[in-house]
């Protein structure tokens, strides 16, 4: 199996690439559409600010490419900022439109004692994603680090969330072949490995 990591110049791709390699898949990190097209599934990573990321995607025309992949039902996993970009809009730095695949908008935390939401929080399953084949382990902590979160989202697209001082933080979201994870599965120990593995199994089942 081959995973295409979309390289649009934002953030640290090394850890996620390594995590996938440890799971025995081929990984290609590229901005080249032909190579991404040839992969069985795509990964949209991202660390940094939302407007910079959208600008980069527009400049490289990868925004249109990603939307076309949704139409084609290609599996894609967005991680952290890579998940947020799939929503309608964000208020980070300046109001910016996103890719609009998920309903909802990205807002800064308010009414919490600490920002960023940094550390290990437990996932509560809202519904079972199609790619989850095996039972979720009892230990459900994953590693979050973010100051903005997906608000006003469509309940039908919510898979799992974490509670941060009363704020429901979407942790896993899903719409058709597209999945988003707000936390970092590549930094979330055993459970992170399990979730990546399950997602890959789901990909293997569809291709």
């Amino acid at each position: 199996m081959k995973i295409g990591v979309i390289d649009y110049g934002m953030g640290n791709l090394f850890s996620v690439e390594q995590a996938l390699k440890r799971l025995g898949v081929d990984v290609v990190v590229t901005a080249d559409e032909a190579q991404l097209e040839a992969a069985d599934a795509l990964l949209l990573p991202g660390v940094g600010a939302f407007p910079d990321a959208m600008k980069r995607l527009a400049e490289t025309k990868l925004d249109a490419f990603i939307l076309a992949q949704k139409e084609a039902n290609k599996p894609l996993l967005g991680i952290c900022l890579g998940m947020q970009l799939l929503f309608e809009a964000s208020e980070e730095v300046a109001p910016t439109k996103g890719l609009g695949i998920f309903t909802g908008n990205i807002e800064r935390f308010s009414g919490v004692s600490r920002i960023p939401h940094m550390g290990w929080n437990d996932l509560q399953l809202h519904q079972t994603p199609a790619w989850l084949q095996d039972e979720l382990p009892a230990e459900r902590h994953v590693y979050f680090v973010h100051s903005f979160y997906a608000a006003n989202m469509d309940d039908a697209q919510l898979v799992a969330f974490a509670d941060y001082e009363g704020v429901q933080v979407p942790g896993i979201v899903m719409n058709g072949s597209f999945t988003g994870m707000q936390f970092h599965p590549e930094k979330s120990g055993q459970l992170g490995v399990f979730l990546l593995e399950q997602w890959l199994k789901g990909v293997a089942a569809t291709c």
Partner: peptide, 11 residues
């Protein structure tokens, strides 16, 4: 750092 990141799944 590179070796640690390649083999470790915690921050």
């Amino acid at each position: 750092v590179r070796q640690t990141a390649a083999s470790l799944a915690i921050p």
